[in-house]
Design a protein around this nucleic acid. Structure first.
Length: 735
RNA sequence: GCCAACGUAGCUCAGUUGGCAGAGCAGCUGAUUUGUAAUCAGCCGGUCGUGGGUUCGAAUCCCUCCGUUGGCUCCA
C-alpha cells in the first residue's frame, strides 16, 4: 500500500463503476458523492478483504497503480457489526475512565456476542455501577463525536502512552508490538487509545448498547500474571436486535440444565457427596440408559467387542501411557498401598523440583524410619536421579494406585492380554468407562464439567492400512448418533499439534502420518472442517465434533483421535501375514464424549422436554376419579407390557389439575380414563405438544406410541422464542 | 487455582436504620369423586451455609472456611 497521501486515485466500486478522486478524499466522501443517505449509513469500508475506516484517506489505501477496489460497508454487512462493537468497547472504556480514577487500559476486542474491555484499577467495578457507566455511555453517544485515527512511530507512541499513564499499553508496545515500526491510535474526545481499528465514523451510530457482566481476567492470558477486571457488553445497530439478543440469553437461562435437572429430578450434585460428583436420579438415569442401550446395540452391530475394566489401576500403568506425569495436577492423588506412600511421593516431587534442603532430607529419612521404612539404596550423597530411582523402586514394591483418569491404558492391556494376529484386526473394544479427574474448582459446572464422568469410550486397534477405513467408519458412526437425537447442525474441528511446542509425545514421523490420515479422510468425506494447530491431545491429533443446538450455541461433543504413540509406549504388537511382528495403530473415539456432558447438553437442547425415545416418563395415565383407578392401573399394565415408561396419577383431585401437573412435568403423553373409556376398552390420548387427540382403543395408542419410540422421532416441543442472530466473525482486535 | 458476586423452609423468593424469621408452591391430614393446564380447609416445615468477632441484642455489620454462580486459566 502506498503511503503517499496526495495523489489522484481511481476508485472501483463493486458494481464496476470507476471514479477519480483526490488522494485525501475518504470512502465517506465517495459515499457522499453517491447519496447523503448512503453517507449516513456507511460504517466502514472494505479494500481487498481488509476492513478500514470510512475516514481513511484513499491515497493510503491505493495500490501501486493508484487504484482502490472499494466496498462501502453499511449496517447491513455482517462485518460492520464487529466494527461497531469494537467502537462500543472504546466508548465503554471512555465512560469507565470518567467514573473511576486510575484506570489502566488493557485490551478491548469483540467476541461472537459482543465485546469486552480489560481494565486494571484498584477500585472494584460492580454491576451495581452499570447504570452509572451506561449513563456516561449515553452522553458520549449523544455527543456523536467522531473517531480520529493517527499514526506514531514507536518512540512517540511509547511516550504518549507513558504520558497518559497507560503502563499496560507501554508494556504492550515494548513486547507484543516489538516488531512494528509505527502503531496507530484512535482519539474520541478526551479518550485516546492505542488501537489497530477500524472504527465507526462517530459514536452516534451505536443505537443499542448494554453492559452485561464483570469478571476477572488475566493480563495476556497468563495465569501467573496480574488479574484485571473485564467488563462484558454488547452493541447493535438496532434496539430490536439488542432486545432479541437479550431474549436469546434469557432463553439460554431458562434452559439451564442445572435448573431443569433439579426441577425435573434428573440429576443432583451436592457437597455432601463431593464437588463435581454427579448423582443420576431415577429420571435422569432413564435418559442415560436409553442413550447407552441405543449406542451399545449400534456398536455391537458394527463389530465392536464390549469390555470392562476397573476404576483404579497401578500408577505405573499411567506412567507408561504418560497420563500420570502429564496430568498430575488434575488427577486425584494416588492411593498408596503403604501409609508412608504419600510421604515418599512428596519427597520424590521435592527432589525433582530441586528444593529439598539436606536438613529436610535427613528429617524425611528419619521419618521414614519411624514407619519402619529402610531405604538402603538411598544415599544422600548420590545424584538426584539415583535418589529418585531409589524412592521409585520402593514405590514399585509398595503399590500406588490411581483413580482411572483414562480408559485407554486398560484397553491397551486388554489388547496385550493375548498374542495378536493381523487376522483379529481391527479389534474394536468398547466400554462405558467411568474416569475421574480433579478439575479445578472454578471449572466445575453442573453436568458439563464434573470430576467423575463416564465416557462412551472405545479403542480400535488396527493395521496402518486399515486406519483410513476405520476412521471413516467412526466419523460415520458419530454422524449417525448425532442425527438420532436430532442434532443436524455441526462441523468438525481438526486439532493438530503446535509444531513449536514440546508438550507432545512421539516422533515427527508418527505425527505426520496421523495428521495426514485424518485430513485425508475429512477432505474425502466432503464434510465442513477447520484446522486448529495446537489443539491436539498430547499423544495424537483429533477430530472434534462441534455441535450447534436449537438456540444456536456450540458444544464440543464427540471426538475421534488417531494415535501412533500409545501402542509404542505399551509395546503392542501383532503378527502380520509376513510372519513378522508389527505395531498396531490406535483410534480413540467417543461419539457422545461423556454421558454427563451429552445429557446436560440434551437437557438444554430440548429444554427438558425429551423426545419419546429418550423420555424418562413417556405416558401418564390420569383416572378421572378414584372410581376409574382400577381401570387406569389395568391400562398402565398394558402400556408397561408394551415397553412404554408409564406411571399412574392416583392423586386426589380434578383431572384438570392432573393434566396441568403432567404438562409441567413434560410427560410426552397423557391417557385420560373415565367410565366411558373403561366401558369401551379405550383411553383418551393427550399429546404434550398438540393437546387432546380423542379417545381410541388402548392397542391403537400403544401402536402409535411404540412407533414413535422405534423411529426415534424428534419433535421439538419447546420452541425457542428467540430470534436467531447471525454471529459476527470470530476475529478479534489485538489492541 | 485466580478475580468478583451470592448463600433465608424440599423449591422459588420477601425480610425496613441491627430489635420476636415470613409468603407461594411442594409435602402431610381431612373433606371433595371430578372430562383436557390449578377444588377447599387445616397442619408440618428454618441453629438464616460453617466457625469466630463487634454489640445489651446479628439473617442484617466485620473476619475465616465451605459451597454456588459469572468469567479467567486448564481441559487426556
Amino acid at each position: 500500500m502506498s503511503t503517499a497521501s496526495i495523489q489522484n486515485v481511481e476508485v472501483c466500486l463493486p458494481d464496476g463503476t470507476k471514479q477519480k478522486h483526490p488522494g485525501d478524499a475518504t470512502p465517506m466522501d465517495v459515499a457522499r458523492g453517491i447519496s447523503e443517505g448512503l453517507a449516513r449509513a456507511v460504517v466502514a469500508a472494505e479494500v481487498e478483504g481488509k476492513i478500514v475506516d470510512s475516514f481513511r484517506p484513499l491515497g493510503e489505501l491505493a495500490n501501486e497503480d493508484g487504484s482502490v477496489p472499494l466496498k462501502l460497508l453499511t449496517n447491513r454487512d455482517a462485518s460492520a457489526l464487529d466494527v461497531l462493537r469494537h467502537s462500543a468497547a472504546h466508548v465503554m472504556a471512555r465512560a469507565i475512565m470518567r467514573v473511576y480514577d486510575g484506570v489502566s487500559l488493557a485490551f478491548g476486542p469483540t467476541t461472537s456476542g459482543g465485546f469486552y474491555y480489560d481494565f486494571d484499577l484498584s477500585e472494584k467495578i460492580s454491576e451495581d455501577d452499570f447504570p452509572k457507566i451506561e449513563a456516561e455511555i449515553k452522553k458520549i453517544i449523544k455527543a456523536k463525536e467522531p473517531f480520529e485515527r493517527f499514526v506514531l512511530d514507536r518512540d512517540e507512541a511509547r511516550k504518549l502512552c507513558d504520558d497518559l499513564n497507560q503502563d499496560l499499553k507501554v508494556e504492550h508496545i515494548d513486547t507484543g508490538l516489538g516488531d512494528q515500526p509505527t502503531v496507530s491510535f484512535y482519539r474520541q474526545g478526551e479518550f485516546v487509545d492505542l488501537c489497530r481499528g477500524p472504527h465507526i465514523p462517530h459514536a452516534g451510530m451505536i443505537k443499542a448498547i448494554k453492559l452485561l457482566s464483570v469478571a476477572g481476567a488475566y493480563w495476556k492470558g497468563d495465569a501467573s500474571g496480574r488479574q484485571l477486571q473485564r467488563v462484558y457488553g454488547t452493541a447493535f445497530f438496532d434496539k430490536k436486535e439488542l432486545a432479541a439478543y437479550l431474549e436469546q440469553l434469557e432463553e439460554a437461562r431458562r434452559r439451564d440444565h442445572r435448573v431443569l435437572g433439579k426441577q425435573h429430578g434428573l440429576f443432583a450434585i451436592n457437597p455432601e457427596v463431593g464437588q463435581g460428583l454427579c448423582l443420576w436420579l431415577p429420571k435422569g438415569a432413564r435418559v442415560r440408559v436409553a442413550l447407552e442401550d441405543f449406542l451399545r446395540k449400534e456398536l455391537l452391530s458394527r463389530g465392536y467387542d464390549p469390555v470392562y475394566s476397573p476404576h483404579i489401576g497401578r500408577v505405573e500403568l499411567y506412567e507408561t501411557s504418560g497420563h500420570f506425569p502429564y496430568y498430575r495436577d488434575s488427577q486425584f492423588a494416588p492411593l498408596f498401598g503403604s501409609e508412608v506412600g504419600g510421604l515418599l511421593d512428596a519427597w520424590n516431587t521435592r527432589l525433582g523440583e530441586g528444593n529439598l534442603s539436606s536438613d529436610d532430607e535427613d528429617k524425611l529419612i528419619a521419618a521414614a524410619e519411624v514407619f519402619g521404612v529402610k531405604l538402603n539404596d538411598y544415599k544422600p550423597s548420590a545424584s538426584v536421579e539415583a535418589k529418585q530411582k531409589a524412592l521409585h523402586d520402593w514405590q514399585l514394591v509398595n503399590e500406588r494406585y490411581l483413580l482411572k483418569p483414562m480408559n485407554c491404558p486398560h484397553h491397551c492391556q486388554i489388547f496385550a492380554a493375548e498374542p495378536r494376529s493381523y487376522r483379529q484386526l481391527p479389534l474394536r473394544l468398547f466400554e462405558f468407562g467411568t474416569v475421574y479427574r480433579h478439575e479445578q474448582t472454578g471449572e466445575l459446572n453442573g453436568m458439563m464439567r464434573v470430576r467423575g464422568l463416564t465416557q462412551d469410550d472405545a479403542h480400535i486397534f488396527c493395521t496402518p492400512e486399515q486406519v483410513e477405513e476405520e476412521f471413516r467408519a467412526t466419523i460415520e458412526l458419530t454422524q449417525f448418533v448425532l442425527q438420532s437425537v436430532g442434532l443436524n447442525d455441526y462441523r468438525v474441528q481438526l486439532s493438530l499439534r503446535d509444531p513449536d511446542s514440546s508438550k507432545y509425545v512421539g516422533s515427527e514421523e508418527n505425527w505426520d502420518h496421523a495428521e495426514g490420515a485424518l485430513r485425508g479422510v475429512l477432505q474425502h468425506s466432503g464434510m465442513e472442517f477447520n484446522e486448529e494447530p495446537g489443539e491436539a491431545a498430547f499423544y495424537g491429533p483429533k477430530a472434534d465434533f462441534m455441535v450447534r443446538d436449537c438456540i444456536g450455541r456450540s458444544w464440543q461433543l464427540g471426538t475421534v483421535q488417531l494415535d501412533y504413540n500409545l501402542p509404542q509406549r505399551f509395546k503392542l504388537q501383532y503378527k502380520g501375514n509376513d510372519n513378522s511382528t508389527h505395531q498396531p495403530v490406535m483410534i480413540h473415539r467417543a461419539p457422545f464424549g461423556s454421558l454427563e456432558r451429552f445429557t446436560g447438553m440434551l437437557i438444554e437442547h430440548f429444554a427438558g422436554a425429551f423426545p419419546m425415545w429418550l423420555a424418562p416418563e413417556q405416558i401418564r395415565v390420569l383416572p378421572l376419579s378414584d372410581k376409574s383407578l382400577d381401570y387406569a392401573v389395568a391400562v398402565a399394565k398394558q402400556l408397561d407390557e408394551a415397553g412404554l415408561k408409564v406411571t399412574v396419577d392416583s392423586s386426589d383431585g380434578k383431572v384438570q389439575a392432573k393434566i396441568r401437573n403432567a404438562q409441567l412435568d413434560l410427560v410426552n403423553y397423557m391417557a385420560v380414563v373415565g367410565p366411558k373409556e373403561a366401558e369401551m376398552g379405550h383411553l383418551a390420548l393427550r399429546d404434550r405438544i398438540d393437546g387432546d387427540l380423542g379417545a381410541m382403543p388402548v392397542a391403537e395408542a400403544i401402536a402409535r406410541l411404540t412407533d414413535e419410540v422405534k423411529n426415534r422421532t424428534v419433535r421439538q416441543a419447546v420452541k425457542s422464542s428467540a430470534v436467531s442472530i447471525a454471529e459476527s466473525s470470530e476475529t478479534s482486535h489485538e489492541y
